[in-house]
Nucleic acid binder design. Sequence first.
DNA 1: TTTAGCACTCGTTACATTTGAGTGCTAACA
DNA 2: TGTTAGCACTCAAATGTAACGAGTGCTAAA
Lengths: 344, 344
Amino acid sequence: MLDERKMKVLYAIIKSYIDSAEPIGSRTISKNFELGVSSATIRNEMSDLEDLGYLSKTHSSSGRVPSDKAYRLYVDELLKLNKSSIDKLENQKIKEILAKESWDIDEIVQSSAKILSAITNYTSVVATPKLKGSRIKQLQLVSIEGLGVLIVIVCNNGLIKNSIYKTNIEVEQEELIKICNFLNERFNDKTMDEILVNLNIDIFKEVLDYQDFLKGLLIVIQRSIEELISIELYSEGIMNILNFPEYRDIEKAKSFISFVEDKNLLLNILQKTSVSQGIDILIGQENIYSPIKDISIITATYTIGGRTIGKVGLIGPTRMDYLNLIRTLKIFSSHVSNILDLND
Amino acid sequence: MLDERKMKVLYAIIKSYIDSAEPIGSRTISKNFELGVSSATIRNEMSDLEDLGYLSKTHSSSGRVPSDKAYRLYVDELLKLNKSSIDKLENQKIKEILAKESWDIDEIVQSSAKILSAITNYTSVVATPKLKGSRIKQLQLVSIEGLGVLIVIVCNNGLIKNSIYKTNIEVEQEELIKICNFLNERFNDKTMDEILVNLNIDIFKEVLDYQDFLKGLLIVIQRSIEELISIELYSEGIMNILNFPEYRDIEKAKSFISFVEDKNLLLNILQKTSVSQGIDILIGQENIYSPIKDISIITATYTIGGRTIGKVGLIGPTRMDYLNLIRTLKIFSSHVSNILDLND
DNA sequence: TTTAGCACTCGTTACATTTGAGTGCTAACA
DNA sequence: TGTTAGCACTCAAATGTAACGAGTGCTAAA
């Protein structure tokens, strides 16, 4: 395909453009990179690369800017090479930052997004785990004087959700335990999905006492499970976008922001990304759903016990720092997975 | 002080400036407001108002811009008049939006901030309740198989906090209930503050069994209480600032953003605002703590059972829409107070 | 095949000019 | 004495023009 020198020239341009954000001229390359040829030669190569669709000009006598196709080539190469090179120090740092304990799903996910945007200076998005397939490990009912009943749902992956059933029907402590045991028996080893389907049908046939109480209780449990399996999306560090020169223009910045704040669209895009393990990258136009064509999204999945249950991503201009971001995101998602596994 | 006509001219300028953000000239006023005098007369009045410190010019031949002093006059007048005029419809709308049930403090507070910024299109800040003086109504310990013990703290205002004590010390169900009862007895009718102080001293004298278990448990309880009484600050809608023409300049926008993201400073400012019930407003330079001198902050308090326990505020350029924001914030804070009271 | 050299392009910058919204002052008027 | 029309003046913003320079493509020689 591309001969070695063309490759070198292209990479030089991509790297330069990633940190300057200005069109790159042939002289810049010949000065800053040791290619052993003159600017005129590079000029010829650049002209070829433009014909091949890897570069473009902003106007007839300007320097060149890498195209989506160029980034794609670059990124695919990175993904191949990058396997080994994980920085010990950075690894340690991320581990420490993430060390804070928590069992609340939303809290873990939300603080992940915060941390990720803080260490990268990019905008981050994190989608909460898909718990559809998870099972309920234990259900606890705790009577709270004068308020109602606290429902605690413990998932098999150690995550916890609780909610309140507000009622003034008084139920004996013993009865409560009975009901609790009864429900635990029902739920035992069923997935969330299965439980949701059978929630009402099964239960009333068998229990005769406390029908009213139970009816209310089940509604709350149902709502909790629904919340548990619904996918939430958090983004952090949108402001970081203002540091990129391409977003000096307020209107562009605003359209970026409203893109990131359109949770539905973003969720859709995240879900469309390849399910294969590891890193997935969408560059510019490749992403047909986005109304903005000059942003890239790097996503990684995180897992519990090897099963993919959520996504974490970084968003920025197509000219994003793929090299570092890929590395950071890899380390990061594996640590988040570890944390989630630890709770198991 | 100011005669009636000067007052009218000043108000006309303030109102015009609030919605145009451009210096106001004498002709604009004479055209858009029915003052019955010519632009030349208004020009004279404006000149006087400038001498009195209510107006200033951006350059020698520009229109006039209201000063902080002018806004102060305007706002004080608004606060006097506004008492009665609460819009039924808007009232209803806010009530509906806030209707979603929740018992988690952070959740209530966070979603309040979101809603407030959404309905006003300004940046909102909300500080979580000060629960120092609250009491623990009930403590519950729930054993969770293979994980440890779930601790549920129910406050006397109905708010709930839970955390996990991760341990593999196995404790009999009966013993757990005993410990739970024991702790409840200790905590009963003490404020958070009091509990924190006495937590360790009291307890070990009396309990002999399960010392290790208890030691770990108390550490977690302590941490939970600390979190419960610590003040958190949430802000939402920072992006709204980009819609104001005065923040077209990215650098200004960035400095606004870093101001709002400096939680400590902001908390400090919120706490300095007057404790008197109702609305408090800080205009521009009046706020000596802020590094930015051209923003205003409107704050309201929210209460539980009449006691002030948190603050909610709106931040924007000094040229903010005081009239509407005051009204909205009043309604809003009273509804939030209601929600919190309901849980009582 | 490479490269020095040169004409050409076009966005950026700097500077001069024009425009217009606004002021302040003065003189006339009710 | 307060009000107003009229006019000269100010200054930011818009417009126009010229010079600059970073870049290209092409040609001809090494």
